[in-house]
Design a binder for these strands. Structure first.
Lengths: 113, 113
DNA sequence: TTTATATATGAATAGTTCTTCAGATGGGCG
DNA sequence: CGCCCATCTGAAGAACTATTCATATATAAA
């Protein structure tokens, strides 16, 4: 029990970790990030794929950009976003694997298509 | 790009996943869950280890209990909590590995001890 | 039965986050 | 130049979340 306290990460690491989880704690942002798992995409396509307004997407992307989860590449008047954070990528893969797994266990819930 | 939409999980799965991430998006709850990685602990020890008031810990545990992340075992007037969710355990392990890794890269930040 | 201790709860406040709307910026094109 | 289109931004309101304090429950001990 004393060892538990010793193994506890530093406060700064905990707030950083909590922040990352917080960024993933929104269905809209999850949609964006899952879409970006496959490769880069422009804002308008992200809005279409995620079913959100372009303004909402832009706000979300700004937040993710501020935390270096995604990076933007400008091409003319379009902006292409890309998932840049390997740790977040792993968390997303894990979450995705988990939903696919529970999908296999509870198929009555139904999927996307 | 059409394939991206097809691979997108169902709305319910996304909100569930976002909810789980949301539960991890708080340093206080992270401390509790990390402490529970090692095994079960009573509320008072969790409060001590996590440096929070017992009321705050009780509220946090209630939330985690409601989502079946932890379960409680009563023994006399004490309650022992245990981490019950394998998926959350994996997410915590991954996050922990990541902070230890960045620790190795940026040792100037300093650790707990 | 009284008292003390561990945990749980409710209510209120304070703080944070999301969404939307209106407008700004800035590149491309007629 | 003047306009259009993609993206970004700021501000405002609504909704949600956290923390605290006071109190409740329930068990154990005296």
């Amino acid at each position: 029990m004393a060892s538990v306290r010793e193994r506890m990460p530093a406060a700064q690491d905990l707030t950083d970790t909590a922040e990352v989880f917080g960024l993933l704690a929104d269905p809209g942002r999850l949609r964006l990030l899952l879409a970006l798992l496959e490769g880069e995409m422009c804002v308008c396509d992200l809005a279409a794929v995620s079913g959100q307004s372009e303004s909402a997407v832009s706000h979300a992307l700004r937040l993710l950009r501020a935390h270096r989860i995604v990076t933007a590449r400008r091409a003319g008047r379009m902006a292409f976003y890309r998932l840049e954070d390997a740790h977040v990528r792993m968390l997303l893969d894990l979450a995705l694997a988990h939903t696919e797994h529970t999908q296999a266990i509870h198929p009555e819930r139904g999927g996307t298509r």
